[in-house]
């Protein structure tokens, strides 16, 4: 008969200290993340990436001079890397950037003309005590279960989310944050809204994973979803397909203003 307590103690500490400081190992060595876009390398009449993108994350609203008007919406990007492989001029390149959470939907859109609205409506709402203790209710509104797999990984010994004072709670009554994954299919709209209504004020919403932001790639067909935005006031948008556990943690810390947002007007800094 094993003594699991001793076995656990003998195994020592497995947890990373990331993000304090944020250059520590965070479990994603050699990750291929979102594309890095440098429009200055585009060829004049080229629209290869727009044609190949399976979720229309790359688009343009111009019929001529396309290359200098390519827009990249990370809220639709499922980091499938196909554009990077297709681009003939390396204007789209691989990156390991993963701290993509943003408080404003427009911050996820990279275009030649910045579209950010000035308002940062979250800032005034976060109260001091959420920084030390935050309770999260997760809801799956039609995901592929990739997000559940990675979100559950935030509680494993390596990431150990509890060290940051963040906990998952089974009941919406105890929750400060509703973390939505999945595209929000018609069947789940009711349960999603009822869960939100059951939460006490003040309450926040994180849209976790690309499909909970825009529905992509499940934004077609009779059970299409368009993300959580049409139904709930989303406070933090976290693209990724799926976001890594470190990305989820970054989003939770961004919500509580414990880290600085890296993405501005679609530019990752």
């Amino acid at each position: 008969m094993r003594n699991w307590t001793l076995k656990g103690i003998a195994a020592g500490k497995a947890t990373t200290d990331w993000p304090y400081p944020d250059d520590l190992d965070n479990g994603q060595e050699r990750m291929r993340g979102f594309p890095k876009f440098d429009p200055s390398r585009c060829e004049t009449s080229c629209q290869a990436c727009i044609d190949i993108c399976p979720t229309a994350a790359l688009s343009t609203n111009r019929s001529e001079d396309i290359a200098s008007n390519v827009q990249l919406d990370f809220g639709k990007c499922i980091n499938c890397q196909i554009c990077i492989e297709t681009c003939p001029t390396d204007a789209l390149q691989n990156s390991a950037d993963f701290m993509f959470a943003a408080k404003n939907r427009n911050d996820l859109i990279r275009s030649q003309q910045p579209v950010t609205e000035a308002a940062d409506r979250l800032r005034s709402k976060i109260e001091k005590h959420f920084k030390g203790s935050l309770h999260v209710r997760h809801i799956d509104a039609g995901s592929c279960n990739g997000c559940e797999s990675e979100l559950a990984a935030t509680t494993n010994p390596y990431y150990n989310l509890h060290r940051l004072g963040i906990f998952f709670t089974p009941s919406p009554r105890f929750a400060d944050v509703l973390l939505v994954t999945g595209t929000v299919v018609p069947q789940m709209i009711g349960p999603l809204q009822r869960t939100y209504q059951a939460m006490p004020n003040p309450k926040f919403v994180i849209a976790g994973g690309t499909c909970s932001i825009s529905g992509a790639p499940f934004d077609f067909g009779y059970a299409a979803g368009n993300g959580a935005d049409p139904f709930l006031p989303v406070d933090v948008y976290l693209p990724g397909c799926p976001p890594s556990p470190a990305s989820f943690i970054f989003a939770l810390l961004l919500l509580t203003e414990r880290v600085e947002q890296k993405l501005k007007d679609g530019n990752y800094e």
Partner: peptide, 16 residues
């Protein structure tokens, strides 16, 4: 509850 209609949605899509 998570039925996304993927099969029917794929009709007409590219192989990629």
């Amino acid at each position: 509850y998570k039925h996304r209609g993927i099969e029917s949605g794929l009709t007409g899509s590219s192989l990629t």
